[in-house]
């Protein structure tokens, strides 16, 4: 044997010795990228009010994450990008008339209550952005129901009506009109098909993210093609919404396009942490979201039931995971 040469300094570690390039930050940035077209389109149409809302949501989620980590003396997790995604999703789920301070509260609740209190990314049971939105909609029901288009302009964002005025306003979204129409057995004579175009291309009612269904779909398909999200969740979700609303005698396409279903199906329900781990489980989860979305919409107190449908299914995830655990190779029946 040759005499021991001077071996170079080598690193010793456990296998495997190589890893895929993809990390959490990449995944989160892909989600942000997928939402960017819709976000830009919203800013273009609503100008300053969009910027203020985005700023308050993202600013407050990032700040909450940073401060929490400092106080709890945990490693800083700001750079994993998950707080950024939460802030962006929260903003897109709020109507443009939401006052900035309310958006800030939503952000603090989303990160502080729904995520960090549970132990940070990975440990939370409920989707943080949706918890933030749910908190606001319960606390200030009138505000989040007010989804009238905001007069777009660069400088009128600061003159957003105060909460006091809001009680007087009855926001009538297309969804609410549709609900009323359905309740009155078509007496209003609304042709919901007329709304397809605006809902797909340029819709100033509802939450921010509903500005354009087409752009949301585009981003969603990119995420699926990139393998970031599993198609089973949005597919199960949307199919169920379409079929059920058709069964209930409503227009399936309208119901899929309205009320934040697309935002929920592609971007909220697909959150890794709060959705099931297995492929079959994800399909069931998606269908469940769709089911409760439609049931809430047609029979619940509020037509906009997307938030609560997904949160409810989030709560069922541990059960779904148990029920749809994969059968280990070589095990004929699941034991133990």
């Amino acid at each position: 044997m040759t005499s021991a040469g001077s071996s170079p300094r080598l690193q010793v570690a456990s296998s495997p010795h190589v890893a895929a390039k993809e990390n959490v930050t990449h995944i989160m940035l892909w989600v942000v990228a997928a939402l960017t077209p819709a976000t830009i389109w919203a800013v273009w149409n609503m100008k300053m009010v969009a910027i203020v809302l985005l700023g308050s949501c993202i600013g407050s989620t990032l700040a909450t994450e940073w401060i929490w980590n400092r106080i709890a003396r945990r490693a800083q997790t700001l750079w994993d990008g998950s707080a950024l995604v939460t802030g962006l999703l929260l903003a897109l789920a709020l109507p443009p008339r939401t006052p900035w301070w309310m958006a800030v509260i939503g952000g603090v609740v989303a990160i502080g209550l729904a995520k960090m209190l549970f132990g940070g990314l990975g440990w939370n049971l409920f989707n943080p952005a949706l918890v933030g939105r749910a908190f606001l909609s319960i606390s200030w029901m009138g505000v989040l129901a007010d989804v009238r288009p905001f007069p777009g302009g660069w400088f009128n964002a600061l003159s957003v009506p105060g909460v006091g005025d809001l009680d007087a306003i009855t926001g009538a979204t297309r969804l609410a009109i549709a609900a009323a129409d359905r309740a009155a057995d078509g007496a209003y004579g609304v042709d919901l098909a007329e709304y397809y175009r605006p809902l797909l291309l340029r819709n100033l009612e509802g939450s921010f993210g509903e500005i354009s269904g087409a752009l949301l779909l585009l981003g969603g398909f990119v995420l699926i093609a990139k393998g970031i999200i599993d198609w089973r969740i949005p597919a199960g979700y949307i199919t169920t919404v379409g079929l059920l609303s058709w069964a209930f005698g409503s227009d399936p396409i309208f119901n899929v396009l309205a009320g934040g279903v697309l935002l929920g199906a592609f971007y909220m329900a697909t959150d890794y942490v709060t959705s099931p781990m297995t492929r079959a489980g994800r399909l069931v989860f998606g269908c469940g979201c769709g089911l409760f979305n439609v049931v809430g919409r047609f029979f619940g107190p509020m037509p906009e039931s997307t938030t609560f449908a997904i949160l409810f299914m989030n709560g069922l995830v541990p059960l779904i995971d148990k029920g749809f655990a994969p059968r280990t190779f070589g095990w004929v029946s699941r034991r133990g």
Partner: peptide, 25 residues
């Protein structure tokens, strides 16, 4: 190379590991 030190990053429940496991674990 893959990182050498044991990190204590959390699992984000993305399911990639289960999807990849040939033993379906």
């Amino acid at each position: 190379t893959a990182p050498a030190v044991m990190n204590d990053q959390p699992c984000i429940r993305c399911g990639r590991c289960s999807d990849a496991c040939p033993m379906m674990l």
